[in-house]
Design a protein around this nucleic acid. Structure first.
Lengths: 233, 233, 233, 233
DNA sequence: TATGAATGAGCCTTCATTCAT
DNA sequence: TATGAATGAAGGCTCATTCAT
């Protein structure tokens, strides 16, 4: 599962250094997801149990950290996507489970950039792009199979599905809140229902494919601020 | 149902001052929606064509500006909601049009606070709360009628609908971009399809009502950072 | 009681304009004394019952206002000083009453500038300097008479007395506070006791005359910030 | 009588950090005293030879800096007061030397708050209040002894003495100015003469004790702006 | 190497002064 | 002319990043 990319340290890190690196990425993944990619670097360092100096030694600036988290995420996603493809089950079910897992693991940062800054950063990474394309390709294959099986509506393509994923990614479920969890599950189900074959209205325009998604990313659509449904800080 | 709230200027402003005030609110509405409520005040001022000083003369601080935009939005929404109720048409269609207009006019800030800060600020305004409750009540009445007509799925309540609206609000359509516009329309339709009676899976949990929404707001669910689908708008 | 000075408007002001001018000076005298010469101009205008525009029409900037207040004060002081000289009474008593009245009317701004800025401003006014010199000369004559009568200690000159006045001027008595008033009266008496002939220790150095005072003003001694004995804003 | 207060850093600072902290407090003590507690933070930082960021790292805001300076001052004062008590000499002389040292070291900020802001800040610190009370208690003991020895006038209490100290604190002696130094010494002596037993007039009202001082602080008396005897220091 | 201290640029807000009504 | 609106410079504070220990 070696990744191979421009983010890779050329030489193997010492055990403790590797541990630091992983703790930082783990902390950043959570905080990026819950607080946003603008979270203060000190907060990331604190959550990782290291000093800022160490953080900066591992990741020369915020963008590098974003890329590292992104690569880590997308690497996991490639595995998940391949697993989904390999499962014998109903392709729609596999696809939906993939979506859900992506959200539950908060891996969405890579699929759709979280902020202009994150997008910028991720754009620069060839390794991420490559892996992401593979995830999308796998998702697309699953989608096609589900559409042929008649369980997902025929008038969408993988771009539409990614946008739906993106929407859902805006809801983050704090660990210990039952109501929030329920809200997420309900909305997830509701949106997935919209993806199903039984859904009524023909969608306006034409199916969105990966290329459309790319164009959209380049300069089309903005989505907005650190929103919240809560009063929490 | 006269508005008169704590944001209301008691005395008439001079013509130029009123014009500036309106320009500032308009600029803030757009920027809050597109960039977030943390957008630099200077940027708001510049977009409104005034100096920062003018902005601060009208709105003593950022929170006041947020409240003013919120009240302005919700006041518009009350009108729209009542119009929707009065329309003889299919209640589901009226409801969906209300959702769409809300999004197109970027009035969503009031329905679901965009950030902890916005939430705080809006909480303090009795006038906003009152108007918002009226909007939600009207939406609920429409929802009930549509459910009785069998055109909206029966297992949801107004809270679910508001959450769906919130999700969609994360997609903002830049004026002159056809692809972005199409993306929005497709996703809007897709999510609305999920709201329809024909939709398949029973939603987990129980219908979300306004009270659940309130609880969620108080401290339940977080949603995340200034996301983007694009590199830059 | 015509003043004659570079601050004088060349032509007579209309009655309402004159009234405005006087109200502004009165407000400024109080606020300069109670809040400091850095008090916001809007606050001065409000206290005077006019708009800032009017204030600035009468006084081109803060320095002009300071000069106007200063000239007004010193003009009053000249009268008071001459009255004190004319009184047949004990010269020490006359002198002490002059000091007390100066403080109670808060005319001290002119004697010792209230801030670097005020000092600067006042320096520029020939009219003020002239009147101030006359006040000091009168005080000096009284002082000499009192010293010859043996009621004021012989080892001081008018400069020392002015410094004592300056010290006392740091205590401002809010209108309706009995304790504050008592504090002022006690300290006033205590300092005056230090000026009396019965006082024990010979003062170090040599008597401070008006010239020393001038030198001190030019660049010698600083005194400090908006102090308070209270928690009030 | 160990100090340990809320301003105390619990852990030892790194050598350079400690040095900076001390330089900042030293710079702030001087500037607060000479320019006022409203002196720009950048100016404090510059005087301490550090950047603003460093200043803010040590003291989270201006109030914390004020408290730190206050605690530092009052801690020194407690030592000085106890030394004064221990000295075998004439209690009046010891008391007067204590007053003089307080002024020469510019420790007065704690005894009488320099501004509403300083007062507020200092109020919040239990550690400062405690130490200040001890200083005042020691001063009171000295005062009593001197009064019993017949060398200080009997009709005053410690509150009066603190007010006298406050008055004198308004004169700040710039290091290298002989005339300013002489002015200070003369006025100091003059005021002290007013405190002596030989002084003539009975003071109006009643002796001011520590409680009166407290009441006065709470809301009674205001004293005024950044005054100066000079054009510029 | 890990740490956390220092730096300084950037955004927030206030207010002196000018200008339009 | 009186008013109060508009401007923008200045000072407060935060935080990304660099550097000394």
């Amino acid at each position: 599962m070696s990744v191979g990319g421009e983010q890779e340290r050329p030489v193997a890190l010492r055990a403790d250094a590797r541990r630091n690196r992983e703790q930082i990425i783990a902390a950043a993944r959570t905080l990026f997801s819950e607080v946003g990619v603008d979270v203060p670097m000190e907060e990331v360092a604190r959550a990782a149990g290291v000093g800022v100096g160490t953080l900066y030694r591992r990741f020369s600036d915020r963008d590098e950290l974003i890329k590292a988290v992104g690569l880590d995420n997308v690497t996991l996603l490639v595995d998940l996507a391949h697993q989904a493809e390999r499962s014998e089950a109903d392709p729609a079910a596999a696809l939906i489970r993939l979506l859900r897992t992506t959200l539950e693991l908060r891996l969405d940062i890579t699929v759709m950039a979280l902020s202009p800054r994150a997008f910028q950063a991720i754009q620069e990474s060839h390794a991420i792009a490559q892996q992401r394309d593979e995830v999308i390709a796998a998702a697309r294959r699953l989608l096609r199979r589900a559409q042929q099986a008649g369980t997902i509506r025929p008038d969408i393509d993988v771009g539409d599905m990614m946008l739906a994923l993106f929407l859902l990614s805006r809801l983050v479920m704090p660990a210990a809140d039952e109501l929030g969890e329920m809200a997420f599950q309900r909305l997830f189900t509701l949106v997935v229902d919209g993806l199903r074959a039984t859904s009524g209205s023909p969608l306006p325009g034409r199916p969105f494919d990966q290329h459309d998604l790319e164009v959209l990313r380049q300069g089309g659509m903005r989505v907005i601020d650190k929103p919240t449904v809560t009063g929490q800080g």
